[in-house]
Design a protein around this nucleic acid. Structure first.
Length: 456
RNA sequence: GUGGCUGUAGCUCAACUGGUUAGAGCACCGGUCUGUGGCACCGGGGGUUGCGGGUUCAAGUCCCGUCAGUCACCCCA
C-alpha cells in the first residue's frame, strides 16, 4: 500500500469532501439563522498562548515546533484562546452581546482512535457579554438546530445539561468539602464509564462520609429537575440555583427544544474553566463520543485576555458528527456534484465536429448549466453514442444532449427506462449562434421535464 | 505514552493441516448489442499478500521487529 496521509490526518476524496461540505453548510446556515457572524484566526500560534494557562504538560498534546525564526509555535489545538485574544483586543469597540462563530481546523498530537484524529474541523459558537440564562438557552438551541438541519431528531441525539453552580451548591449541601470537590467531579465525570465500586472507593479515599458518598452516587442517576427540587426543597442556599436553572429549561422548552433535553449532573466537562451551565450532545445509543460540548465560562476572558466579560460557547467537531450521519444514512448522495448535461456525439456528429460541441458547452455554461463531456475529440467523434450515453449515465449527469442530426440537437433524461425518458428536439442553428431565447427555451424545458437527481 | 486485536486489488472477501503462475464479485478502462438499455455479453488494466528480517526444500499462511488501523487505558477539543 502506498504511503498515505500522516497518521490521524485525512485525505478528503470527493465523497468524503461532500460529507464535510454538507456538515459545514449546516453549521453556517444555522449559525447565520441565529445572527452569528463568522471570524477566523491563524492556524499557527505562539506556544505560550496555550502553556500560559494550561501549564507545560499540555505540550505533549500539541503539534508544536520551532520555526525558522527560532519562535516556539504550535498548530492550534483549540479556538478559545485565539477567540479570547481577539475579543479582548477590541472589547470596548465590539457591540455586546457578541455572537461569533468559526470553523477552524484544529490539531492535537495524540494517538488516533475512532472519532478522534490528530486533526479535525470544529464549529465554535460563542456569546460574549451576556450573563443572562437566555444566552445559555440560545447557545444550546443553535447546537440542537444544527442536529435538525442535518436530519437528526431527539431519538438520535440527546442534549445532556447541567450547571456547575447548581452542582457545586448541591455538593456543599450534602457535605462535600472544598478539598474533596475535584475528586467528586472526577467521579461524576466518569460515572457511566467506571464501575460504581471504584467511584465509591475513590471518594472514601478522599475522606467523604458514607452518607455523602451515597448522595453523590444518587446524583449520578439522572432524574428531573422537579425530583431534585423536591428532595432539597428545604434548602435556602439551593433555591436561587434551582430557579435560575429552571428558567434556563423554560427558555429551551419555549424554543421547542424540550424533547431533546435531559438533566444530567455527571456532565462536568473536563476543563475547569466552566463556571455555569454545561452541556454535551450525544448520540442516543451512546455508542459514539460526544458530538458537541460547551457551557458558560465567565472567568476565562479575564484569565486569557484580561477583560472581564461573561462568556459562553460550544465546540462541535466534524468527525463524530460525520460518523453519526453515516450510521443513520444521512449523508448526501455521491452524485450531488454531477453535471446537469453531458454532451454526446449523436448521429449528427460528423456535420458537427467537436468544435460545435465546445460552442454548445460554452453557451450552456453561460446559461448556468454544469456541462460535462469526454475530453477526447477522437472518442467524441468515433465512440458509439450508446457507449457515450452509458458514460454519461455513470457520471451521474441528469441529462444528455446530442447532435441528433445535421440541424437538430436532442436533450434526453438519463434516468429510468430509456424508452420512457423525456426527450426533446431543438434546432441546432440558434443554439450554435448563442441565441439567448433558444437557451431560455431549452432551460425551461429541462426545468419542467428533468427532475433533480433523487437519492436513488 | 501503556496494553490487546487486525493488516491479501480502489472496496468486500477467497486461497484445505505451510505446497504450482494469489482468485472472485463490485468498481475502473475498451468493445458488442438498431435496442424493456438504471441491462446483458466479450475483453482489458490493476497485488513485491503493509514494510523489513528469520525458520523451512517451500511462507499470504509460522516467528521477531517495524509501520498503519482499531479497541481499552491516559487525556480530553
Amino acid at each position: 500500500m502506498a504511503a498515505g496521509a500522516l497518521p490521524g490526518f485525512r485525505d478528503f476524496y470527493p465523497d468524503e469532501f461532500a460529507l464535510r461540505a454538507h456538515i459545514f453548510r449546516a453549521w453556517r446556515n444555522v449559525a447565520r439563522r441565529y445572527a452569528f457572524v463568522e471570524y477566523d484566526g491563524p492556524p499557527l500560534e505562539p506556544l505560550d498562548l496555550y502553556t500560559k494557562k494550561s501549564g507545560d504538560e499540555i505540550v505533549g498534546q500539541l503539534y508544536n515546533f520551532v520555526d525558522k525564526g527560532g519562535r516556539e509555535v504550535t498548530l492550534r489545538p483549540e479556538m478559545t484562546p485565539t477567540f479570547a485574544r481577539m475579543v479582548a483586543a477590541r472589547a470596548n469597540a465590539i457591540r455586546k452581546p457578541v455572537r461569533w462563530f468559526s470553523v477552524p481546523q484544529l490539531f492535537r498530537y495524540e494517538r488516533a482512535q475512532r472519532g478522534r484524529l490528530r486533526e479535525h474541523f470544529q464549529l465554535n459558537v460563542d456569546i460574549v457579554g451576556e450573563p443572562s440564562e437566555l444566552a445559555d438557552a440560545e447557545l444550546l438551541s443553535v447546537a440542537i438546530d444544527i442536529m435538525r438541519e442535518l436530519g437528526l431528531g431527539p431519538d438520535d441525539v440527546r442534549a445532556r445539561v447541567s450547571d456547575r453552580r447548581l452542582l457545586n451548591a448541591l455538593l456543599v449541601e450534602i457535605g462535600v468539602t472544598e478539598e474533596q470537590l475535584p475528586t467528586v467531579y472526577a467521579v461524576l465525570d466518569k460515572f457511566a464509564r467506571q464501575p460504581h465500586q471504584i467511584s465509591i472507593d475513590k471518594m472514601a479515599a478522599a475522606g467523604l462520609e458514607p452518607k455523602t458518598i451515597d448522595a453523590v452516587m444518587a446524583f449520578g442517576e439522572a432524574g428531573t429537575l422537579a425530583d431534585l427540587r423536591e428532595r432539597f426543597k428545604h434548602s435556602e442556599a439551593l433555591a436561587p440555583h434551582f430557579e435560575r436553572f429552571g428558567r434556563y429549561l423554560d427558555h429551551l422548552h419555549a424554543q421547542g427544544n424540550g424533547a431533546w433535553i435531559d438533566l444530567d449532573l455527571t456532565i462536568v466537562r473536563g476543563l475547569a474553566y466552566y463556571t455555569g451551565t454545561v452541556f454535551e450532545l450525544f448520540d442516543a445509543k451512546g455508542e459514539l463520543r460526544a458530538i458537541c460540548g460547551g457551557g458558560r465560562y465567565d472567568n476565562l476572558l479575564q484569565a486569557l485576555g484580561g477583560v472581564d466579560l461573561p462568556a459562553l460557547g460550544f465546540g462541535m467537531g466534524d468527525v463524530v458528527l460525520g460518523e453519526l450521519l453515516k450510521e443513520r444514512g444521512l449523508v448526501p448522495a455521491a452524485t450531488g456534484n454531477a453535471a446537469d448535461l453531458y454532451i454526446v456525439g449523436g448521429d449528427g456528429v460528423l456535420a458537427h465536429g467537436v468544435a460545435n460541441a465546445l460552442i454548445l458547452a460554452r453557451h450552456l455554461r453561460r446559461t448556468g448549466f454544469s456541462v460535462d463531456y469526454a475530453l477526447s475529440a477522437d472518442k467524441y467523434v468515433s465512440q458509439a453514442s450508446r457507449n457515450q450515453l452509458d458514460s454519461a449515465r455513470k457520471s451521474g449527469a441528469r441529462a444528455a444532449i446530442a447532435f441528433d442530426s445535421e440541424d437538430q440537437v436532442v436533450v434526453q433524461g438519463l434516468f429510468g427506462k430509456v424508452s420512457e425518458a423525456p426527450k426533446h428536439h431543438f434546432d441546432a442553428a440558434p443554439l450554435l449562434d448563442g441565441d439567448t431565447m433558444a437557451y431560455a427555451a431549452l432551460k425551461d424545458w429541462i426545468d419542467r421535464n428533468i427532475p433533480s437527481r433523487q437519492t436513488d
